[in-house]
Design a protein around this nucleic acid. Structure first.
Lengths: 203, 203
DNA sequence: AGTGAACTGGACTCGTAGTACAGTAACGAG
DNA sequence: CTCGTTACTGTACTACGAGTCCAGTTCACT
């Protein structure tokens, strides 16, 4: 093993970097094995095919992303115990984090696979689906907690509001990629934050 | 010519349908020529390569999309001359339209190319960029018009607010694709509509 | 009758995914 | 010390899609 520290992880690291930069299809196995300094045979020893690689990448990414949200909102909760203010602080932290990320926020991975789903098998698609449903549940829970204290100024579908967090991030990342600007995603999150301030404003 | 009604357009129709369903990369030239009942040589007579096809598709799509927004908000203006209400009506019409669309709203095309941009040349990427900048300008103009009458409850960046229309649509379509639900995009637009109602609410 | 646009069809190159399998180095269990 | 397993290397092969080249054909229009 030595400094090779688990070849499988090294493959995933290199693949993820390349996929975030260029997309899944544009990332060749040739390129991955060159980067990881292994043979093609070695790659296929760890991953049956590119689909298995995609699945493993998604699994790892979703875990990281969930942990990131856990930490972010735990930190926000430390700063303010009120659920609304906790959410507002968490979103600000998220926006700042996105701004500091050089090029590719992993969020891309979800949208990226969503738009190339015919390239993937059912396992990958289902993983993608469950990740988004998980975020829906997470944020819906937080919004419901807020709504118990601050009555919403307008009736909103709480599932849809939960989805809006993911949607605004994904949409912002699409804009950012297409426009080649660098802070669209964080700006979109800040606008969404303003939305929440208006929606849950005390009367 | 006869019923063949311009081979080039037929290629674009078939390619667009396939790309919306499966993504650009998953759409083979083989499949396009089979659908259009032409030879491979015929395809390359019209399009130098897949990039040229992508560019032509994007050009056509952007034109259609712009016309769609023109018509939609012209219709909304007929129904109510006030810029805020015109916007609210327009968004409702847009949400309804998205719900009625079977599987693939063309909006996909923008996000799709954004996430596979290494597959495309600079011309395609620039086209994509200009389209989004065009929508930014369109909606920013409308929001400024609204803001002149209804002072915003919170200060917002008008460029970002303009982008949010595209972002919410694109983000909603990503969710819709990944979740395999059918009304996420329209729900997200309706939430955004609520945002505008709160933001520009008379005091 | 002649020209050019819009093709057909076939042969070829190249890059990438994926298969198959034989061989090997390292290591822990018996 | 050997045996088996894990983690590979390396080579050779198939299949497929993109893209090139080009010679020949059909048809409309001048």
């Amino acid at each position: 093993m030595d400094q090779k520290l688990d070849t499988r992880s090294r493959i995933l690291d290199i693949a993820e970097a390349s996929v975030l930069e260029k997309g899944f299809e544009a990332t060749s196995i040739e390129e991955i094995v060159a980067g990881a300094e292994i043979s093609r045979g070695g790659f296929f020893y760890h991953f049956k095919d590119k689909n298995a690689l995609a699945r493993a990448m998604l699994e790892r990414y979703i875990e990281v992303e969930n942990k990131l949200y856990d930490d972010l909102f735990a930190r926000a909760r430390e700063l303010n115990d009120d659920p609304l203010h906790c959410m507002l602080i968490g979103l600000k932290l998220l926006a700042e984090m996105l701004e500091e990320m050089p090029t590719g926020h992993p969020g891309c991975v979800i949208a990226s696979t969503a738009y190339q789903d015919r390239l993937f098998d059912e396992g990958v698609r289902e993983l993608n689906r469950q990740a988004i449903l998980g975020w829906r549940k997470r944020f819906r829970g937080m919004f419901e907690e807020i709504a118990e204290i601050y009555e919403p100024r307008e009736a909103v579908n709480m599932d849809a509001l939960g989805d809006m967090v993911s949607g605004v991030v994904e949409g912002g990342l699409v804009l950012q990629r297409a426009l080649r600007e660098h802070n669209n995603a964080s700006e979109q999150i800040m606008l969404f934050r303003t939305y929440l301030k208006l929606l849950f404003a005390p009367k």
